[in-house]
C-alpha cells in the first residue's frame, strides 16, 4: 500500500494520469463525441474553404465555428474535431496494442532466457541482440509498404512496431529473472520439487511486475511516436482514416497558411506524450524509491 500512497502524493503522476485517462476516454467514445458535435470525419465541406488561396479554411483560427469546434482541415473542409478524436483511436490504440504485444514477447523470452540454462540463455540473448540491432524504422517502412492494402492497417501497425521493439523488455526481464532465481525463496521452491514453469509463474512473475510495468509505461509514448512517425512518412493508416501523425504529415505544407491545423494534432500529441511520461516516472518512483533517488 505504500506504492499507492506514494503515487497519491506525486502531483506529476496525478496530473499525467488524469490527462492520459481523458485521452483514452476520448478515443473510446470518439463516435459519441463526433455525433455530439454533429460532424463526421469523412465529410467534405468545400463551402468552408477559400479555393483561390489554395483551400485554406475561411474565417479565423482555421475556420473555428459553432459547428466546427476546432475548425476544418485545409484542402478538404473535413471537421477537425471529429478527425482529432477519431485520430486518438488510432494513435492510442496502436500504441497500447503494440506495448501489450512487446511486453508479452519480452517477458516470455526474457524469463525463458533467465531460467533456461546456459545454452538457451546464450541463444535467446543473441536473438534479442539481433532485434535490438535491427534498424527498426527502415524495416518498418519496408514491411508496411509491401503488405496488401486490404489488411487492417492499425493492427498491422501495432504488430510491426511490437515485432521490432520487444528487445528492451526481454533484456530487462532476463536480467531481473537472473537476479531473482538466486533468491532463497526460489531455491526453496526448487528444492520442494516445483518445475520451471511453476517457478516462473509463482515465484518469478510477481517480482517482475514492478520493473516491467515501469518499462511498459515508458514504452507507450515511444510507440506513439513510432506510429506518428510511420503515419507521417505515409506508411501508416490509409485515408480517409485519420491519425495524429498523418494529420501532422499533411500539415507540413500548411504551417504558415493555417497554423491551427498544425497546432491541434501537434499539441494533442505533445500533451498525451507528456502525460504518459509523467505517469511512467511516477510509477518508477513509487515502485522502486531507492533507484529513483539515485536517478534524481
Amino acid at each position: 500500500m505504500t506504492v499507492l500512497r506514494r503515487l497519491r502524493g506525486d502531483r506529476g503522476f496525478l496530473a499525467g494520469s488524469v490527462v492520459a485517462l481523458l485521452m483514452v476516454l476520448v478515443a473510446v467514445v470518439a463516435p459519441l463525441l463526433a455525433a455530439a458535435a454533429g460532424q463526421d470525419y469523412t465529410n467534405y465541406h468545400d463551402n468552408l474553404l477559400d479555393s483561390a488561396r489554395g483551400g485554406v479554411p475561411l474565417g479565423r483560427f482555421g475556420g473555428m465555428s459553432a459547428d466546427h469546434w476546432l475548425g476544418v482541415e485545409p484542402g478538404t473542409g473535413r471537421d477537425l474535431f471529429a478527425r482529432v478524436v477519431y485520430g486518438a483511436r488510432v494513435s492510442l490504440g496502436v500504441a497500447v496494442g503494440a506495448t501489450m504485444l512487446q511486453v508479452l514477447f519480452g517477458v516470455l523470452v526474457g524469463t525463458a532466457a533467465g531460467l533456461g540454462g546456459r545454452w538457451a540463455d546464450a541463444a535467446l540473448t543473441r536473438v534479442v541482440d539481433l532485434v535490438l540491432a535491427v534498424p527498426s524504422l527502415v524495416l518498418a517502412i519496408s514491411l508496411l509498404a509491401i503488405v496488401p492494402p486490404d489488411w487492417p492497417r492499425p493492427l498491422l501497425l501495432a504488430a510491426v512496431i511490437a515485432v521490432l521493439g520487444w528487445g528492451g523488455t526481454a533484456r530487462i526481464t532476463r536480467g531481473e529473472t537472473l537476479s531473482l532465481r538466486t533468491r532463497d525463496y526460489v531455491a526453496a521452491a526448487r528444492l520442494s520439487g516445483a518445475g520451471w514453469f511453476r517457478i516462473a509463474r509463482r515465484e518469478i512473475a510477481p517480482g517482475l511486475a514492478a520493473p516491467v510495468l515501469t518499462y511498459a509505461a515508458l514504452l507507450l509514448p515511444t510507440n506513439m511516436i513510432a506510429e506518428a512517425g510511420l503515419s507521417f512518412l505515409g506508411v501508416g493508416v490509409r485515408p480517409p482514416t485519420p491519425s495524429w501523425g498523418q494529420m501532422l504529415s499533411t500539415a507540413t505544407t500548411w504551417f504558415r497558411a493555417d497554423p491551427m491545423y498544425v497546432a491541434v494534432p501537434g499539441g494533442l500529441l505533445f500533451l498525451t506524450l507528456l502525460a504518459f511520461v509523467l505517469v511512467a516516472n511516477g510509477l518508477r518512483r513509487a515502485l522502486d524509491p531507492r533507484q529513483s533517488e539515485v536517478l534524481r
Binding site: 467534405y44 468545400d46 474553404l49 479555393s51 483561390a52 488561396r53 484542402g75
Partner: peptide, 15 residues
C-alpha cells in the same frame, strides 16, 4: 463527381 473537392485537392482554384 464533386469537382469543387477535386479542385481543392489539387491545390485550389488558382492552380
Amino acid at each position: 463527381i464533386n469537382r469543387t473537392s477535386v479542385v481543392n485537392a489539387l491545390g485550389g482554384s488558382t492552380v
